[in-house]
């Protein structure tokens, strides 16, 4: 059998293979984005949002309206929390941030505030509180290393209440999951 050298036809075939692979990967990327960004409508107490599809939604408790968790995240499962906090008249966003800081400090292990500031989120005035804490399984026989979790709260003042949107993600996944959270944040109306 003749052992022919790599020909011009081989070169074209080689380029065609690269092209078809690139096209498949681009199509795969678009498909991935459509699956990851697919959502289900959520509507409670005149607050509506587009919650991620396929995430686990926990039974709301206290002032929480929605708690949804991505069970497929590695380490700490990425979680969004939507709360409607009733407030006394004349309460400011920074006071709400202080309340949240105290509350997180009591509930979360090794809680530390990283930053807090006034921001504008998709045209709406908000107060941003970013922090970090450690999530450790309370079961002492559990062998997993505790996870470092980064959190971000957005506080929107809404008359006599504050709409608080929280984003919790494993430190390793935080930046990767932030884009999806911003879509959720953008979808919130009240």
């Amino acid at each position: 059998m003749e052992n022919k050298k790599v020909s011009l036809g081989d070169r074209y075939a080689e380029i065609a293979v690269i092209l078809i692979t690139v096209i498949a990967l681009i199509a795969g990327w678009f498909y991935k984005s459509s699956v990851e960004n697919s959502s289900v409508p959520f509507n409670v107490e005149s607050i509506s949002a587009q919650a991620p599809k396929g995430w686990l939604q926990s039974e709301p408790s206290g002032d929480e309206l929605l708690r949804t968790t991505d069970r497929s995240s590695s380490g700490f499962n990425t979680t969004y929390i939507l709360r409607d906090m009733p407030l006394a008249a004349d309460t400011t966003a920074s006071q709400v941030a202080n309340l949240l800081t105290l509350s997180h400090g009591q509930d979360l292990l090794a809680f530390r505030v990283l930053d807090q500031r006034e921001v504008t989120v998709y045209g709406k005035a908000a107060y941003e509180l970013s922090y970090v804490y450690v999530e450790s399984n309370p079961n002492l026989t559990h062998k997993n290393i505790p996870s470092v979790v980064r959190g971000m709260d957005y506080i929107f003042m809404n008359g006599n209440s504050a709409v608080v949107v929280s984003f919790w993600a494993d430190d390793k996944n935080y930046d990767l999951d932030l884009g999806r959270f911003l879509l959720f944040l953008q979808s919130i109306t009240y």
Binding site: I18, A24, L25, A27, G28, K32, S72, L176
Partner: peptide, 29 residues
Amino acid sequence: VFRVSHWIYTNTLSTILGGILVVGFTQEF
């Protein structure tokens, strides 16, 4: 980059399409 474990098992279509377009083409290429 594609983080397939996050979305590929969402439903049958994503398992098949993700398996072919992302996993299949990457590995075979």
